[in-house]
Write a protein that binds this DNA or RNA. Structure first.
Length: 577
RNA sequence: CGGGAUGUGGCGCAGCUUGGUAGCGCACCUCGCUUGGGACGAGGGGGUCGCACGUUCAAAUCGUGUCAUCCCGACCA
């Protein structure tokens, strides 16, 4: 490719709306342009990168025995009603009508469609197991798109779905996919961790996420991990706790109600009573699937919303507003504001207590009266009808590993892939069945496996950049090398550059020649910004028969003959895998 | 959804307070000059100032509404 013809426009400055590294870099280097919120044009350089990632994914999926197909982007409402997700999915599902007023949606994922495809063509145990995948654009109408390609509304994803006759078969395929994923991300030049995670709206039991570990702002997930190998997303992580005081008898000799004016926060309450937060029972009001739920937890800990939601089998959770709290209080004959809520007398609504609550004795608790708390209280004395215990606690760095007991560490990660065991979550309601040896029908045992293609590209930038621009891993770089003749008026420089260009092209190296009539500085800046893994500069030293060979990643420079440079590059490209 | 901010050429911004011919830098086109880390000079093209309504002799500027975009929050009572 000739730089003079390449459709790319680099910018002198970063676009003002870009926040994270990958967004800034990709926009400035001319890879992407925003069309509308969360929706981007993939310009030629970007598309080359995306195709490289797609091809790696394709090869490894095919190697792992999966088969590629392509399903529609626009989908009918009916299938989503069959699975029950038409109502459950929420506003992220972009719904629309066609000219006949038929209701459709844009595919945010394809479980419904693939299950229907399988139902249609997968009738016998003899055809199984089978794993089908596609690489498709998806659309999720995110509340708040941000971070460029990392959290867009439209994005490219590889999604695979496996069909088995048994749990054992699913386990096997699950591990097969985990291995394939590991290979895929390695080939893309990405260091990933496979972490346990919540299975969310997709449903199912077991799931893992593949996280690119990054120190940039773009890491959206907290990953807890341990040297022993344990690692989990914060929405799923569990831990053992360090020993702390959970008995308040040292502070309170008897059970009584005390005035605690203006103690709206735990900090204020601790200060007012001169006690540690570990002997306060914190009560929070959540709205799960539009209904109130009370969460009880030791006050030095934080509720993990996803865990709480799962504990009551919900699909949607948020903290209650002060108006909702007031309403709830009124319904139960109380009149208290946040800060003084307690479980006592809250009949008829689910109460979930974190495991930390079990051991608490003689604690402090709200009693649904503003500016008052009960001290020296015990759960058995509170006269509660039914409490459900569950682990609804957010793990913190320093908690102990649930497997080996050592201290957990925390890091930020960008999720680039996930694998789920779905079981019969979709096949059952959608009546997608096969016949076994005895002619009996059973629902498929399914798994699903996703990789964010466009997100992987962005994550790669987050993981590989410097102040000058992108440093693509060679396997996913848009081109392998750029040849920069410093002065295109110089006949010898141009002659050598053109010769190398032809030789490299003929040898299968993806090469760009920067034949623009620009000053050297401009060409170097662009080369760094765009992130070609290698640069060969043909300048004055060509008079001694030498060119400059530079590695973007390390910055290492070497003077070599054009022939040696070509040899190096051909060799490097041959070894990409 | 709550809070904050911003919409002026492809990108980055000024102008708005105090209404009066729409500006600057980068990018783009032409010529000259320059050629190892985003040169320089001269000339040039490109904008219904987000949109609508209103006030006014006159609106980018003032008012109302609306749309869009971005940031923060939506997890501790």
């Amino acid at each position: 490719m000739r730089m003079s013809k390449l459709f790319v426009q680099t910018l002198r400055e970063y676009p003002s709306d870009a926040e994270v590294v990958s967004h800034k870099m990709l926009a400035r280097a001319g890879y992407i342009r925003k069309l509308t919120s969360g929706v981007y044009n993939y310009l030629p350089l970007m598309w080359r990168v995306l195709k490289k990632i797609e091809n790696i994914v394709r090869e490894e999926m095919d190697n792992a025995g999966a088969q590629e197909l392509l399903m529609p982007f626009v989908q009918p409402k009916e299938l989503w009603e069959e699975s029950g997700r038409w109502d459950a999915y929420g506003k992220e599902l972009m719904r629309l009508k066609d000219r006949h007023d038929r209701i459709m949606c844009l595919g945010p994922t394809h479980e419904e469609i693939i299950t229907a495809v399988a139902r249609d063509g997968l009738k016998s145990y003899k055809q199984m197991p089978v794993n089908l995948y596609q690489i498709q654009s998806k659309f999720r109408d995110e509340v708040r798109p941000r971070y460029g390609l990392l959290r867009g509304r439209e994005f490219i994803m590889k999604d695979a779905y496996s069909f088995d006759t048994s749990e054992e078969g699913l386990d096997k395929e699950y591990n097969n996919m985990a291995r394939a994923y590991k290979k895929i991300f390695e080939r893309c030049g990405l260091d990933t961790k496979m972490v346990q995670s919540d299975s969310g709206a997709i449903g199912g039991s077991v799931s893992h996420e593949f996280m690119v570990i990054t120190d940039t702002d773009a890491g959206e997930n907290d990953v807890f991990y341990c040297d022993c190998g344990y690692s989990a997303n914060s929405n799923h992580a569990v831990s053992k706790l360090p020993e702390v005081v959970v008995d308040g008898k040292k502070y309170f000799s008897e059970t009584k109600i005390v005035d605690t004016p203006n103690t709206h926060s735990i900090d204020e309450l601790c200060e007012f009573l001169s006690i540690p937060s570990t002997i306060i029972l914190k009560t929070l009001v959540y709205i799960v699937d539009k209904k109130p739920v009370l969460a009880l937890i030791r006050a030095d800990k934080t509720v993990e919303e996803t865990k709480l939601m799962n504990s009551v089998g919900g699909m949607d959770i948020r903290i209650a507003s002060s108006a909702e709290i007031a309403e709830l209080m009124a319904e139960h004959g109380f009149d208290a504001v946040a800060g003084f809520i307690g479980p006592c007398g809250m009949t008829g609504i689910p109460i979930v207590a974190d495991e930390t609550v079990r051991d608490m004795k003689n604690f402090v608790v709200g009693i649904n009266q503003t500016d008052k708390h009960q001290v020296g209280a015990n759960l058995s004395d509170l006269g509660l009808d039914e409490i459900k215990y569950a682990d609804i606690r957010l793990v913190e760095a320093g908690d102990f590993c649930p497997e080996c007991g050592k201290s957990l560490k925390v890091t930020k990660g960008i999720e680039v892939g996930n694998i789920f065991k779905l079981g019969t979550k979709y096949s059952k309601p959608m009546n997608a069945v096969y016949l076994d040896k005895n002619g009996k029908s059973h629902p498929y045992v399914m798994g699903c496996y996703g990789i964010g293609i466009s997100r992987t590209a962005a994550a790669a930038v987050e993981a590989h950049y410097d102040e000058h621009g992108i440093k693509w891993p060679i396997a996913i770089a848009p081109y392998h090398v750029v040849i920069v003749p410093v002065n295109i008026q110089d006949e010898l420089q141009m002659k050598v550059a053109e010769k190398m260009y032809e030789d490299l092209k003929n040898a299968g190296v993806e090469v760009v020649i920067d034949d623009r009539d620009e000053r050297a500085g401009v060409k170097f800046k662009d080369a760094d910004l765009i992130g070609f893994p290698y640069r060969v500069t043909v300048g004055k030293t060509i008079n001694e028969g030498l060119v400059e060979y530079k590695i973007r990643e390390t910055g290492d420079v070497e003077k070599v003959t054009p022939e040696v440079a070509v040899e190096h590059l051909v060799e490097i490209v041959k070894n990409i895998k």
